[in-house]
Simulated assay, not measured.
Amino acid sequence: MTVTPGLASPGLATADLFRSAFRRHAAGVAVITARGDAGPVGFTATSLASVSAEPPLLSFGIGTGSSSWPAVSVAEYVGVHVLGEHQEGLAATFARSGADRFAAPTAWREGPGGVPVLDGVLAWLVCRVVGRVPAGDHRVVLAEVLSGDPAGEGRPLLYHQGRYHGLGD
């Protein structure tokens, strides 16, 4: 076993260390939506990941304390929306707690399976939830892509160092 100098003993990192390290990791920005008993719900996610092409599977994380978690915890279908750099305001709206995320100026419609589909995004997908894996104070949701539209134009919105950014050349 190799011991790294300055590392007295392996232990758990602090939440501050973890957050600080991941602030340096640029991530694409997506909005996840679902139909809830009291209406549509949604949240901004930077944890979207491709899992498999055959079958087409993706994953995202959601905190169990999130206002969207009660709906996502039982939803059969979710919407996944890849945001463009022109949609910083939309990302901020869906990241804000207590906001009516589906009020004007948010443009949306009901899509397949009753899933709220946002207008003007780079791509949207409707997915069937196939698993919810406990991961600390979050759940990793696994979902199979059923339909969608990748026809949006533009460049992706990124999240880095606690702020939204466009993709630089």
Rank of each mutant, 00 (worst) to 15 (best):
G168E: 14
W108G: 05
R139D: 10
V133S: 06
T93F: 00
P116N: 01
L48W: 13
R163A: 15
V51W: 04
D137I: 01
A99Y: 09
G162S: 13
R109A: 15
E54Q: 14
T4H: 11
A95N: 10
L142P: 05
M1Q: 09
A27S: 15
G98L: 12
I32Q: 08
C127D: 02
G148A: 11
R24H: 13
L90R: 07
Q87T: 09
A151N: 11
V129A: 04
V78Y: 09
R128A: 14
S52I: 02
L17V: 07
L57E: 04
C127N: 03
D137S: 14
L57C: 02
G111Y: 01
E54A: 14
G6A: 12
V82I: 13
T46W: 06
A143E: 03
S66L: 04
A38E: 15
R35A: 15
G42A: 07
P156R: 12
V129E: 05
H86I: 00
L83Y: 10
A123F: 02
E88S: 15
P40W: 09
E110M: 01
V117H: 04
A123Y: 03
H86M: 00
A49N: 14
H138Y: 11
D169A: 14
R23V: 01
D37F: 03
G39A: 12
G120T: 04
A92H: 14
P156L: 12
H165T: 09
R132H: 09
L90C: 10
L146A: 03
S20I: 01
L48I: 04
E153G: 13
G36P: 08
P150T: 15
I62S: 06
V80H: 01
T46R: 05
R155P: 00
F102C: 03
E144P: 02
G113Y: 04
V121N: 06
V115N: 01
D119N: 10
G63V: 00
V133D: 01
W69L: 06
T93A: 12
T4K: 05
S73G: 13
G154D: 05
E144Y: 00
A143G: 03
G120P: 05
G84Q: 05
A38C: 07
H25E: 03
H86W: 05
A71V: 07
F102Q: 12
L48V: 14
T4S: 10
A71P: 05
D119L: 00
T106A: 14
I62C: 10
F18N: 06
C127V: 01
V117N: 04
T64Y: 00
T33Q: 09
A49Q: 13
E54R: 15
S52L: 03
A49P: 02
V126C: 04
A107C: 10
P56C: 06
G36T: 12
V115I: 01
